[in-house]
Each structure stands twice: as structure tokens, then as C-alpha cells.
């Protein structure tokens, strides 16, 4: 199984690569549209801000590649947010593969932002290796709208989609590569979906 990890030029993709390598996948960090289009699986990682990430996608000429993939695509954390229509962060238009917006989490006493740590899942689609009651690791200040694409949610003031799926487009707001056994089950399900 060859897996392309989209290289937007910032770090922290090392842990994602290792997470897949533990499961036997061969990973390539690349920004080459041809290589991304022909990989068996594509992962869109994300650290940083939506505006910068979308600017990199446009500058690298990757929008059409990412929106036209016929193989499974997985966006992780900010990468999942980029799959939606638009983000409040930097007020930027995103890839529009999944309907809905990305909005800032509201900090209130007892509910700090970023939402950081292990939160419990409610799972509606067991095909992705996740189970209701699993704890997975989150670290984010913005969250996608809950909607028909949600296959797992958690609660943080409002219902937050933890994992989404629309056809061959998947997203994880949590960090599967840092979510112990539940995360590994999810990555494995992505490799075999």
C-alpha cells in the first residue's frame, strides 16, 4: 500500500508517517500533483492555520488534485477542516468536499480553548474501527459543523465531529497517530476502506 502525505511545507507530519508505517504502509511525503493523484491513499495533514495551509495548497497547484482524487483521502486535524467549505480561521475558503463551515470554539470557565486532551467518542459508523466509549486525542481551537458526514462525534460545548466520511473522503479531527489503540484501529480501517 502506497500512501502520499501531502507536504504543505510545515513540520509535524513525522508522527503521521510513523503511525501508518507501524501498520505496514509505505509513506511518501510529497507535493507533486502526479504522485498524489496516483497514490493508493492520500493523507492531508495539518498543523498551523487554515489561511496559510490553503495558500500553500493554491501555490502548489494542489486544489484540483485534492478535489479530483478517486482514491480515499484522509484529512487529519486542520487537514479535516480544510475538507469543508470555509473556515472562520483567517476567513478563508477551503476545499468544499464536505458541506459545512469551520468555526472557533468558545472558551468559557471550565471549558478551555484549545480543546486539548482525550475525549470520549459517540460513534455512528462502526466501519472505521472506532467504538462508542473510545477516548482519542484532540488538540484544536476550531471545529467543523456537525452534519450528515459525521461518523463519530464528541461533546465540547457543542457536538463536534471527531470523524467524517463522504464517499471516499474521510476526516479525523483527533490525532489517530497519537490516540493509542483506537487511533491505530482507525488508521487501519482507512488503509482497507
Amino acid at each position: 500500500m502506497t500512501l502520499a502525505i501531502v507536504d504543505l511545507g510545515y513540520g509535524n507530519v513525522g508522527s503521521i508517517a510513523v503511525g501508518f508505517q507501524r501498520l505496514g504502509a509505505e509513506t511518501r511525503l510529497t507535493a507533486d500533483p502526479a504522485e498524489i493523484a496516483t497514490a493508493e491513499r492520500v493523507v492531508l495533514p495539518g498543523v498551523g492555520a487554515a489561511g496559510y495551509a490553503m495558500a500553500r495548497i493554491e501555490a502548489l497547484g494542489l486544489r484540483a488534485t485534492l478535489t479530483g482524487l478517486d482514491r480515499p483521502l484522509l484529512g487529519i486535524c486542520l487537514g479535516m477542516q480544510l475538507l469543508f467549505e470555509a473556515s472562520e480561521e483567517d476567513d478563508v475558503g477551503c476545499l468544499g468536499l464536505i458541506p459545512g463551515q469551520v468555526r472557533r470554539l468558545e472558551a468559557v470557565p471550565g471549558r478551555p480553548v484549545p480543546h486539548m486532551g482525550w475525549s470520549r467518542l459517540d460513534v455512528s459508523d462502526a466501519d472505521l474501527g472506532l467504538r462508542t466509549g473510545d477516548y482519542v486525542y484532540f488538540a484544536h481551537s476550531y471545529a467543523c459543523d456537525d452534519g450528515p458526514a459525521s461518523v463519530a462525534t464528541t461533546r465540547y460545548g457543542r457536538n463536534i465531529p471527531a470523524a467524517v466520511r463522504r464517499g471516499t473522503v474521510l476526516g479525523a479531527q483527533f490525532h489517530p497517530e497519537r490516540s493509542s489503540d483506537a487511533g491505530a484501529r482507525f488508521l487501519k480501517a482507512f488503509l482497507s476502506c
Binding site: 513540520g11 507530519v13 513525522g14 498543523v47 490525532h175 497519537r178 493509542s180
Partner: peptide
């Protein structure tokens, strides 16, 4: 396969990037 942070003498954006690239969360 759980999150971890690293600390100690990180003085610049590039030094932080190197830690994150090496796998720190």
C-alpha cells in the same frame, strides 16, 4: 503512540519546527 511535548532551549521558529518534524506534538 500517545502525545508528547518537548522543552528546553527552543529559541526560534526553526528549532521548534525541527522538534515537531521529529515527531513531537
Amino acid at each position: 503512540d500517545i502525545p508528547f511535548a518537548v522543552a528546553g532551549g527552543i529559541r526560534s521558529r526553526d528549532q521548534a519546527a525541527a522538534c515537531l518534524e521529529a515527531g513531537a506534538d
